[in-house]
Write a protein that binds this DNA or RNA. Structure first.
Ligand SMILES: [Mn+2]
Ligand SMILES: [Mn+2]
Ligand SMILES: [Zn+2]
Ligand SMILES: [Zn+2]
Lengths: 140, 140
DNA sequence: CTGCTATTGATAATGAGTCTCAGAAGTTAA
DNA sequence: TTAACTTCTGAGACTCATTATCAATAGCAG
């Protein structure tokens, strides 16, 4: 009864077909809480014996992002990373410039100030990127 | 007496040669407070009759960024933007997702919270990206 | 000036992401 | 179930910002 599959729901809403590839890619996205790029997801699927193409990985990720099941991270190094949004609330990221490790943070004060700034200008906030580039514990 | 040319200073510090191209590119960067991409800077120079190559524009911008004369902005659309750091203090950006207009903001509270978050984790803050994607006044 | 090197322009290469299109597979109605 | 219709997929071509290559050019130290 309860809809157990958010992917199916999203596909239905969009009038898209439910396919093996789309399910596999979504499963793979949910398999870890890491922040992986499209190539890593593609290679994981291949290693598991799944025959899927890079194009389909990119196409499916687009659907997932559009339907709020996955978040896209732009770290400014030319490769987008992705994380599923199943169990986590909103957060932003700390990225170690040495080892690349990614940590998460969430600060209510900052979130409020952001809204305030946008309000004061009469704009409408759509989304934000807030990334702290650091040297982590292990790297100092 | 007073060092009038920050470019010359930077080049000397790096042991690099002072060239016509590097001066022109720096001049062009300082000509406006806009946030332009490499191609726009390249085309402006060509329009002014300067014979310079794209490669040299990219190479020179790298030098300027490395020496803190220019800031690179990654807006996630595949083209980096650049702004000179001559007269402006630190600020972050609001970007209209409709018209692409870029506004600037600076919030002391946010800056403090950032430092606090990084301190609490025992990390060292190197730099940060904070971008608010909005729909601006003109676009609603 | 001369000679040594860094720099440059033209252009090839790179690489993440997108597009194309013929064949494969999901969907619908009978 | 099958047929008919469409969407989806895989392979590989393509795009486009940026980087690398390399022979020719031009700073600069002596
Ligand atoms: Mn995250
Ligand atoms: Mn700015
Ligand atoms: Zn680290
Ligand atoms: Zn706008």
């Amino acid at each position: 009864m309860a809809s157990p599959n958010p992917l199916k729901k999203a596909l239905k809403k969009e009038g898209l077909r439910y396919t093996q590839q789309r399910q596999s890619i979504w499963d793979e996205m949910c398999a870890t809480d890491e922040h992986r790029d499209a190539e890593e997801i593609y290679l994981s699927l291949r290693n598991e014996g799944m025959n899927v193409s890079r194009a389909t990985v990119y196409r499916t990720i687009d659907v997932l992002v559009k339907n709020n099941l996955v978040r896209k991270l732009e770290l400014g190094d030319g490769r987008a990373r992705y994380e599923h949004k199943m169990d986590s609330g909103h957060h932003d990221h700390l990225i170690c410039v040495q080892c690349g490790k990614i940590e998460e943070f969430m600060d209510e004060t900052i979130e409020e100030r952001q809204d305030q700034i946008v309000d004061d200008l009469g704009f409408k906030l759509i989304r934000h990127i807030h990334q702290l580039f650091v040297i982590c514990n292990d790297c100092q």
